[in-house]
Every structure is written in C-alpha cells, then in structure tokens.
C-alpha cells in the first residue's frame, strides 16, 4: 500500500466515498491552502471496499456544512502530537448557503445579483433539499 507519512498535527478527513476526494478538495477550497495537503484515492477500506482520504498538515477551519451535505458518514480526526485528540461527527445540515445552486429558470436566484443560494433540508431520510425561494428540489 502507498505510504503517506502520518500527521504530527493537522486534520484527517476519512471515509470519503471513493471518487469524491477531489470534489471535497475544491468545495473546501483546500487548493487555496499553503500547507501540505495529501489526497489519497481508492484506499482499501474494510467498511466500503474503497475509500478516499484527505490529510491536511495544519489546523484549518473546515466547512462541516459542506462535508455533511456531501456525505454525513465522512469522519474527521483532529491530530495533535501525532495522536487523535478529537473526532468530529457530521450531520446532514438543516440549511445550505452557497454550497449548491438552484437550477430553476423561474427562480429569483436566476436573475438577482448577489443573492445567496439557500437550500433547506426537506427530507432527512432521502437527503432532499429545496430552494428557499422557489421550493424546487435540488437535483445533483
């Protein structure tokens, strides 16, 4: 297995569904960080068969809302002195602001300048989100 150095201090985003690491990389704007960031794709996972992992060699503020929306099963480990000092649990966010965009051409978001694209969770079981303006369901 490919060996990536373990972190002394930083964040590990683990149990990412295989193939989603780069999406998360850009959504979390990790490309804008100056620190070392490792993206591991298709790592072996006893739970999922394959998974992606992202390791960030610094303590940065992560948008947990975005991660929870993509997959609430993702785990986040905070590492200090080479040890896990905190595990963050993700939940499906009740509200998403400027994470996804409304595609309804009849929605005010299609013409209004500088309007936030806001979605509310409408169905916890089916992970359905609706635009707060037009109520159209988000179709990924």
């Amino acid at each position: 297995m490919l060996n990536i150095d373990s972190l002394e201090r930083g964040i590990v985003i683990d149990h990412i569904k295989a193939g989603y690491a780069m999406k998360i990389y850009y959504l979390l704007k990790l490309d804008q960080l100056d620190c070392c960031v490792a993206v591991i794709k298709n790592a072996r996972s006893s739970k999922y068969g394959k998974k992606d992992i992202i390791k960030i060699e610094d303590m940065v503020d992560l948008d947990l809302e975005v991660l929870g929306f993509i997959d609430p099963n993702i785990t986040i480990d905070i590492i200090d002195n080479g040890k896990i000092v905190e595990k963050k649990q993700l939940v499906l966010p009740q509200k998403l602001t400027n994470v996804i965009k409304c595609k309804n051409p009849r929605c005010i978001t299609s013409i209004e300048e500088e309007i936030d694209h806001v979605f509310k969770l409408s169905d916890q079981n089916d992970h359905r989100y609706r635009c707060v303006y037009c109520e159209q369901e988000y179709q990924g």
Binding site: C131, V132, Y133, E135, Q136
Partner: peptide, 24 residues
C-alpha cells in the same frame, strides 16, 4: 420569478405582501 417577494421581505422596512410569484 419565484421567491422574489421573499427576497424583497428580507431587505424591506415595510410589510411585503406576495401578490403572486411565478408559478409558486
């Protein structure tokens, strides 16, 4: 456009009544 009166209500200093927004 659907949601325009909601958008207006968030910036308004007076009561806003939705008199019909698109097909919404």
């Amino acid at each position: 456009k659907e949601g325009a009166p909601l958008r207006a209500s968030r910036y308004s200093r007076i009561p806003v009544i939705n008199a019909g927004d698109g097909g919404h």
